[in-house]
Amino acid sequence: MKSKNSIQSPSKVGFWEKLMKIDRRWIYLAIGIVVFIPMLVYLGFPIRVTKEVRSVYERIDSLPPGTVVMVPMEYDPATMAELQPLAYAVLRHCFSKDLKVITTSLQIEGVTIIKEDLEMIAAEYGKKYGIDYVFLGYKPYPGIVILNMGENFRKPFPRDYYGNELDSLPMMKGVYNYSSCALILNINATSGVDYWINYANGRYKAPLAIGVTGVMVSDYYTFLSSGQIFGLIGGLKGAAEYEKLINHVDLACRAMDVQSIAHSVIVLFIVIGNIAFFATKKRKKSI
């Protein structure tokens, strides 16, 4: 009996050793298949809305029509997968509530994308440029620009993205700085979000919420618990939560289905990888 076990054992461990040396391209292929197949059908996995996302929604939802809000958006082609669905959801919410939206883009590669996103969502709700929304565009050195906007939007942006004088835009009459805005919701894929926390909130005490990529979320929870930001929307999951809140299923909710399945497979791979690691380690020790 004992000898039988000793014959079986090497073949079992051999399997795990093979698994430890598997070509990583098989993993890529598996993830590719797992991502592609669920895309063919909408499964509608449940999405739980977190407190930090709900607080942003409720704050915006409580504002009376005509209130000015600032939604600076800083993402580029590399990060739009996560933040574009969020920008769509937030803008839809603002325009559906008839809020006036001021937008900037202090991330140079994303300026055109953000301009197009803003125009597209504004058109969905029949909003007019200069009356319902304004796009200030891009200026370099975000920290300095954010500081200057705290004094007056006209300092860094004497003209908007399209070259109009700010005073010529009806919406900007009487709107000078952050104190003219009910809140700032910064959608940001860069460390530039620190400037908004430091200067817009720290220096000018503007009520601030942020929407960041998944990679960044864990770094900013500390600002939520300290009250420096009143809301935090993280990555595609946060965008899906916001879509659920505004009752408009779009990119994020659909992508979260795929994401949930992909995550399950990744977790399975991690578990298998760990079992293989300990199995081969045990064998090495016994040798």
Binding site: I31, G32, V35, F36, M39, A78, M80, A81, E82, T213, G214, V215, M216, V217, S218, G234, G235, L236, K237, L251, R254, A255, V258, Q259, A262, H263, I266
Partner: peptide, 15 residues
């Protein structure tokens, strides 16, 4: 959260 972000990029491209 990084894994979530990277999978989101892949999902968007596949879509």
């Amino acid at each position: 959260l990084t894994v979530m972000g990277r999978v989101a990029l892949l999902v968007q491209r596949i879509i």
